[in-house]
């Protein structure tokens, strides 16, 4: 009997260390499927972030380099410039990309570096225990905003997809989510398309993925999905913000 569903070749057999209800695992799987379907695993180099996904190299079975916090786009630039034939992707959280690494991602996108970024927006710093991120929602309580994010003091959450799509250099910039099965197929298509643009040597590509962190949001996985849908999705609008065509 033919198998209709199986583990992607690009996913290892390791047990993932992520919390129950965390979306990192789902996103890893989609990246692995895209790599499989494009047949690029053996020429792919991933850049791991500093954040909960620091050990993504244990789960996705291709070459990896481990970046310092926020610096993955500069490392990807270094690799892609000296080995344009390799397929390079960064996998970054919102503290990593939208706070400490904002300079690196903006300039890499603006130079039109031909790599792919998977940007996991879970509105919080997961790994360090739930501090406020630039993407934390107004009023959202975190360990460093115990009264809720006060936008008069720290401004509104940064919308990375919108910000990067304002750059004039061509690129593929999209925002997706994986919080319910109905969104996952579209997210998968977007991730695959982002890698495909790179394979064609076309442009920089970034997929922002609206995600959950039930542990640090202080919610059950089900509550987290409801909260993300009700609170994050109206502010973080889904869809393509920029295409190279």
């Amino acid at each position: 009997m033919a198998k209709t569903f199986q583990k992607p070749e690009s996913l290892t057999d390791r047990y993932m260390h992520y919390c129950p209800g965390c979306t990192h695992g789902v996103i890893h799987r989609l990246v692995a499927e895209a790599i499989d379907e494009l047949g690029i695993r053996k020429r792919t180099v991933g850049i791991a972030p500093v954040g909960c996904a620091v050990m993504v190299y244990d789960y996705i079975a291709c070459d990896f380099q481990e970046a310092a916090h926020g610096r993955a786009p500069a490392m990807a630039t270094g690799i892609k410039r000296v080995r344009p034939d390799l397929i390079v992707f960064t996998y970054q959280g919102d503290g990593d990309l939208a706070s400490i690494g904002m300079g690196e991602i903006v300039h890499a996108a603006n130079r039109g570096e031909k790599f792919t970024t998977i940007f996991v927006n879970n509105a919080i710093y997961g790994m360090t225990g739930g501090q406020m991120a630039p993407t934390t929602m107004p009023g959202q309580k975190t360990t460093t905003s115990p009264m809720g994010r006060n936008v008069d003091e720290v401004g509104m959450p940064i919308r990375i997809a919108e910000l990067l799509s304002s750059l004039v250099t061509p690129g593929y910039i999209t925002r997706q989510t994986v919080i319910r099965p109905k969104y996952i197929l579209k997210a998968k298509e977007a991730i695959k398309r982002a890698f495909a643009y790179q394979v064609e040597g076309k442009c920089f590509s970034l997929v922002e993925v609206v995600s959950t962190c039930p542990t640090n949001w202080g919610m059950t996985p089900v509550e987290a999905v409801d909260w993300a849908e009700k609170t994050m999705l109206p502010y973080y609008r889904l869809g393509d913000f920029k295409t190279p065509e």
Binding site: Q65, R71, A74, V82, G103, H107
Partner: peptide, 10 residues
């Protein structure tokens, strides 16, 4: 800062 990591990547 970025150049240091371009060196690291390459």
């Amino acid at each position: 800062v970025a150049v240091g990591y371009m060196i690291f990547g390459a």
